[in-house]
Nucleic acid binder design. Structure first.
Length: 883
DNA sequence: GTATTCACG
DNA sequence: ACGTACGTGAATACC
């Protein structure tokens, strides 16, 4: 059987335009919508293998619908010029594929699609409609399905009759009734005011059509709703009519005219070249295409030389050059455990592969590695340093890290593998590690020539990336941040990781035994009360016990069933004694599995834990920590806080010193917003939450109750997160209205903050990104989205990122400076950990006085703000005691 | 592999 | 009307 695919051209182009950043090609033409559209087209061709295909577009300004309703699509903002100029390009792409594109004056794309999908001719075919518009769901039947864009352009969701029922509980025919009731603000279709999707679905489950709902208006739940339905009955009927797709458009062709000829790869390549779609070009050549003639992309030839003991002297002249790329290959991701398999260097033309065996005995090479004047370009400087230094090599002279550069250019990417970067910044191709080594069980080690070639390609790629990224950094004003902060910080972090934190194994075991006993006891008690044994760790089984068996009220649901999260359980606790036990069990279980068992696994042969700090993970500029994560060791509850007793100094008689910034984020806000009241509070050393409570509630210091302070504190946090009344109401368990009042009063009290928040969002909408104090960027592609959720999230992010990111800038700066000062003063103390707003050191007793002064001095002075920074220092025999 | 939960700032 | 707090990592269950 054949397959007919009908694409809603405007809808997909629209989707693509807003999902992708405004790309341009060399001629300055915008191509993001064309690119996204083409990605979708390729996906459909590859995955659906259609025999017949048509792309329908909307034509002109007015359609027959305007006869019924003048305001149809009246409020819709004009299609931006950047998008409309891309429509002809999309048609060019379609021409190259020899795909029919079609539009007809007076009709919308929907109507053309509907006419074809429901034509008698289509009945013998499987039909698939591709769109981002829910309306098209009305066309679904036994042989018509809809592929709807979900997120971005290529993430889709397939709807058949069953899927429509699962999603809405409606037949496809009822979609028009749904829209009749709800309306659609983007098309200026009114519907019934005050009726959203929830209410509309409830009504349609009671009566199947708009007509019947109107007829039985008296039987509807709630007087107000009845009134609204009666009052706006005409409007609902009109809305339904407007939403109905017209399936009898006079077309001069039929389905059989839409037959898809074999792809002419030459034509397609030409268009792709013109548009500079280099990765797509690769894709059509490397397979997956519908037709014949699948041509393998030529793997680029790369030259390399394997250096062995016999002829290493002749290669020594390569090392004389003042700048080379170097890459270290390892057996695993974690450099603290990995073995080095080999090292490669490149000057951009020649590549050398140096097996570990050679490197170990080659003094000239070792001298080159250790020479600060021999500049090295690397991918992942920290990992490179750690792995080489662990094997006894000294290192210096790292000039530029392409990984850090790529991160600064866009910290929101999910992957920064070399292969990704070659594609992203060079529009080139490099096989990924996964492709080369395989994954999971298929993973294998490379050796000899194969390994040498792969590493040669990598180092060569690093060489090519360097000038491109350098230029991009300069253009984005990120060069100083790179060389003045992130590069030096990487060295500091490498040192901290290698130093590691000493663990008191005995204490860890003892705590483990204690927690295990506690867990066993709670398990017995819970089984006893429940009357059955079950897996308390399974939210599913737990939900069945709590809500089905014991009949507790369901306060919150998740996608898959009942929610059993702590905030739900806390509210249920007064109703049944089992709940408290479960909460306690969860708490103890977490401590045991994550912190006792989890930490034990990570203790090295030296009795220390060597975490990895990641410098390119967060979108805000913060660090993250893994294997293990030492940035989330418990502190809030005493029972968990005791875990900190296991972290001790590595030498007898030394101390742990913890220094934390007090309220950095709010101080940063005071600085960025220039709000006078907020600045006043910090300049006069007032307790900020009490001060906020006084200001917001209009009371004197002595009148501030603990509850008022708690509320003020939550508002302060909320402000930093990019506040919403809903979020605050959830946090404080109050109504939205009350939360809104708090926020309004806060902004009245601190008008500078309000002004700042508005400015930063406005700027993000204009520029497409926000920045921190040091110019660190974060792009917010959804900031102008029509989707309320995406847009709101982007707006909150716009408010939060400069604050969180500036705080990250500050402590990073302090770390670099602190490392420098400790070396200058020849101190033996060592910086061990960073936890976002605090630094942990181990300190010999005789250095305590100097460190107690030096650390806060450096941290407070890191980046001068218009308000003072305040650092509190604590010392103890373990991390626990340094409080 | 995804979802849920919970530890931290 | 929409449906949310910002940023992370790890363990566990379940498909």
């Amino acid at each position: 059987m054949g397959k007919l695919v009908l694409i809603d051209g405007n809808s997909i182009a629209f989707r693509a335009f807003y999902a992708l950043p405004l790309l341009t090609n060399a001629t300055g033409t915008y191509t993001n919508a064309v690119y996204g559209f083409t990605m979708m087209l390729l996906k459909v061709l590859e995955e659906e293998k259609p025999t017949h295909l048509l792309v329908a577009f909307d034509a002109g300004k007015t359609t027959f619908r305007h006869n019924d309703y003048q305001k149809y699509k009246g409020k819709r903002e004009k299609t931006p010029g950047e998008l409309s100029e891309q429509i002809p390009l999309i048609k060019e792409v379609l021409d190259a594929f020899q795909i029919r594109s079609f539009e007809l004056e007076g009709y919308e794309a929907d109507d053309i699609i509907g006419t074809l999908a429901h034509s008698p001719e289509a009945e013998g075919l499987e039909t698939l409609i591709v769109s981002g518009d829910k309306d098209l769901l009305q066309l679904v039947n036994d042989h018509v399905q809809v592929l709807m864009t979900r997120k971005g352009v290529t993430e889709t969701e397939r709807y058949d009759v069953k899927a429509v029922d699962e999603r809405y509980g409606l037949t496809p025919g009822q979609i028009i009734d749904l829209k009749g009731l709800m309306g659609d603000p983007s098309d200026n279709i009114p519907g019934i005011p005050g009726v959203g999707e929830k209410t509309a679905l409830k009504l349609l489950h009671q009566f199947p059509t708009v007509e019947e709902i109107i007829e039985h208006a008296d039987e509807l739940p709630g007087k107000k709703l009845q009134e609204k339905v009666r009052e706006h009955a005409d409007q609902a009927l009109l809305s339904k009519k407007l939403a109905t797709i017209y399936t009898e458009v006079p077309l001069e062709f039929g389905v059989s005219d839409l037959k898809l000829p074999p792809t002419d790869l030459k034509k397609v390549s030409e268009v792709f070249k013109k548009l500079e779609f280099k990765t797509l070009l690769n894709r059509i050549h490397t397979g997956g295409e519908t037709g014949e003639e699948v041509r393998e992309a030529e793997p680029e030839q790369i030259s390399y030389q394997i250096v062995t003991a016999d002829h290493r002297d002749e290669t020594e002249k390569v090392l004389k050059q003042d700048q080379l790329a170097v890459y270290v290959e390892m057996t695993e991701e974690n450099p603290h455990r990995a073995e080095v398999t080999g090292i490669a260097v490149s000057d951009g033309k020649a590549q050398l592969y140096i097996p570990m065996e050679t490197a170990r005995h080659w003094e000239a090479f070792q001298a080159w590695l250790a020479d600060g004047n021999r500049r090295k370009i690397v991918y992942d400087v920290k990992k490179t340093m750690v792995s080489l230094e662990n094997k006894g090599f000294q290192t210096d002279g790292f000039q530029f890290d392409v990984l850090l550069a790529a991160y600064l250019l866009n910290p929101s990417e999910s992957r920064y593998e070399l292969s990704d970067m070659v594609e992203r910044h060079l529009q080139g191709f490099l096989p990924s590690d996964e492709e080369v080594y395989g994954k999971g069980a298929k993973r294998r080690a490379l050796e000899g020539e194969e390994l040498a070639r792969h590493l040669a390609r990598k180092t060569s790629a690093i060489c090519q990336l360097y000038p491109v990224l350098l230029k991009e950094l300069e253009q984005a004003d990120l060069y100083d941040l790179m060389c003045g902060l992130e590069m030096p910080l990487a060295g500091v972090l490498a040192g901290m990781e290698q130093q590691g934190v000493r663990v008191d194994k005995k204490r860890l075991d003892d705590l483990g035994i204690e927690l295990k006993e506690s867990m066993d006891r709670l398990t017995d008690e819970i089984y006893e009360i429940a009357g059955v044994e079950f897996n308390i760790n399974s939210p599913k089984q737990l939900g069945e016990i709590l809500f089905d068996k014991l009949g507790l009220p369901v306060l919150k649901k998740t996608k898959t069933g009942y929610s059993t999260s702590a905030d739900v359980l806390e509210r249920l606790a007064p109703q049944h004694e089992i709940v408290e036990k479960i909460l306690h069990y969860r708490q103890v279980g977490k401590l045991y599995s994550t912190y006792i068992e989890g930490l034990k696994k990570e203790i090295g042969r030296d009795g220390k834990i060597h975490t990895q700090f990641h410098q390119t993970i967060t979108a805000t500029g913060r660090l993250s920590s893994t294997e293990p994560n030492l940035q989330n060791i418990p502190i809030r509850l005493e029972e968990g806080r005791r875990i900190r007793q296991v972290f001790v100094p590595s030498k007898e008689g030394w101390y742990m010193l913890a220094a934390d910034y007090s309220q950095v984020e709010l101080r940063v806000l005071a600085h960025l917003s220039e709000d006078e009241s907020l600045q006043y509070a910090f300049k006069h050393g007032l307790d900020i939450h009490t001060q906020t409570a006084m200001d917001v509630f209009g009371v004197s210091e002595t009148e501030v109750t603990p509850l008022m302070r708690r509320h003020a504190k939550a508002v302060n946090f909320g402000i930093v997160y990019g506040i919403s009344d809903f979020g605050l109401s959830q946090n404080l368990n109050i109504t939205r209205k009350e939360a809104k009042d708090f926020i309004d009063r806060y902004f009245e009290t601190y008008p500078g903050v309000k002004r700042y928040m508005d400015t930063v969002v406005k700027q993000a909408k204009k520029e497409g990104f926000v920045t921190t104090l040091l110019g660190r960027r974060r792009y917010l592609p959804d900031i102008n989205s029509r989707n309320f959720n995406l847009r709101s999230f982007a707006e909150r992010t716009a408010m939060n990122t400069p604050i969180q990111g500036t705080a990250a800038d500050i402590i990073k700066y302090a770390m670099v400076e602190m490392d420098k000062r400790m070396k200058e003063e020849k101190l033996e103390s060592r910086m061990l950990l960073q936890v976002h707003d605090e630094l942990i050191f181990e300190v010999p007793e005789e250095e305590l006085p100097v460190m107690r002064t030096l650390v806060p001095e450096v941290m407070e002075g890191a980046l001068p703000l218009s308000v003072p920074l305040q650092v509190d220092v604590n010392v103890g025999k373990s991390w626990y005691e340094a409080k």
